[in-house]
Design a protein around this nucleic acid. Structure first.
Lengths: 207, 207
DNA sequence: ATATTTAAATACCAATCGGTAAATAAATAT
DNA sequence: ATATTTATTTACCGATTGGTATTTAAATAT
């Protein structure tokens, strides 16, 4: 018996909110913010509009909640990546995991944070800017990790942590576009391997 | 006097079609296909809908004509890049020109071919697939150039031309996302430089 | 002058957009 | 039993979507 099974007053909700959120996430992931219509959302979630609005607010809030579920679930591995022992291993795991994830068969191709509102009408500027913040956030996490690596001595002293982080973020974002365009997991692995060849390790000169 | 100034029958068109196409291009570039509404298009072009439809067909055809104008104009440099004498110089000019172009101040940030229909509603699948073809086309041009370079001997024999082309296309697509997210020209230059460090030249081992 | 051709302007169309008011149904509290 | 609370359902809202039929205007051909 779950901890939330205590009897609540009023008619009980007939759908599971987390399951519904997963379905909404899948649509936003595939269609983007503007491309996901309320008609498709309500149809897929199996609930009607007033129920959706009562449970989640409005389309924008439903998107934000889907986005939170996305970062807590499918892409939670990004947070683990910075725990790798060296800067190189951080980069390697970041790119290899991305190649795997962006082309996985059990969910939409590509990264929702990269693509859900890249170009859109003026009315979606809030969502567009929110996703820009999310992109910058993971880039910053990488940059902070590489600054630490430089202090630790496993990253060349003449390397630029911020540039390296942006380099990885750029590759990830490009790989996301590639995945959406039909690139295979192996093709993205090849790209990751190419990108890691010039990594500025401690003992190497970066020139 | 232009060669097309011979008198035509009927009421003369009051707007210049190429100028109108440039304005339409700017909107599709910034907003994407779905994000560009006919209201914004007609308002910016300074013509009303029936004139637009008589001149360009419909929204999808207007987009396709804008796209042709895009490839013939702003991104025509991509075709020149493959004329560089070595594979490395091709890669270098491709990435450096991209960094410059994607962040230029006189037009929207990012690349229209990359972003105009990455995620969208089902009704835009035709445009989405068309842009995927365009992306693949320039990647293939690079791959063909690198195959030639390998025969010419200025690219390491153990390098994979197709992977290198996809690597560059991926970087370009990622840089486009970065530009849209606010990255500066110098930041993209740094990424390009990083990406070129490991280039498999003739005399280097690619491992 | 008049007919013909082409474009522009006004007004409109059905369909879809995100969002909600009002009525009904299912649970608990008293 | 009844009141209260909450969810679902149906039906609707104004605004916007892409797209057009109809009328009017401006040019040339005869």
């Amino acid at each position: 018996m779950s901890i939330n099974d205590k009897k609540l007053r009023g008619r009980p909700r007939v759908f599971d909110m987390d399951e519904a959120l997963d379905k909404a996430l899948a649509i936003f992931w595939k269609r983007g913010y503007e491309g996901a219509s309320l008609a498709e959302l309500t149809e897929t979630l199996g609930i009607n509009k007033p129920s959706l609005y009562a449970a989640f607010g409005n389309k924008e809030e439903l998107f934000k909640k889907s986005l939170s579920r996305y970062t807590a679930g499918p892409v939670a591995f990004v947070k683990d990546v910075i725990n790798e022992p060296t800067a190189f291993k951080v980069a390697e795991r970041f790119l290899l995991n991305a190649a795997e994830f962006l082309t996985a068969a059990n969910h939409p191709k590509g990264c929702m944070i990269v693509q859900a509102a890249l170009s859109s009408g003026e009315s979606s500027d809030i969502v567009k800017d929110l996703l820009i913040q999310y992109r910058y956030a993971y880039e910053q996490q990488l940059a902070a990790r590489f600054e630490k690596a430089q202090i630790d001595g496993d990253l060349a002293s003449d390397a630029n942590p911020k540039s390296l982080a942006k380099y990885l973020a750029t590759l990830h974002q490009g790989m996301s576009v590639q995945a959406t365009s039909g690139a295979s997991k192996d093709e993205l692995f090849e790209i990751a391997k190419l990108a890691l060849k010039n990594w500025p390790n401690k003992n190497k000169s970066s020139n």
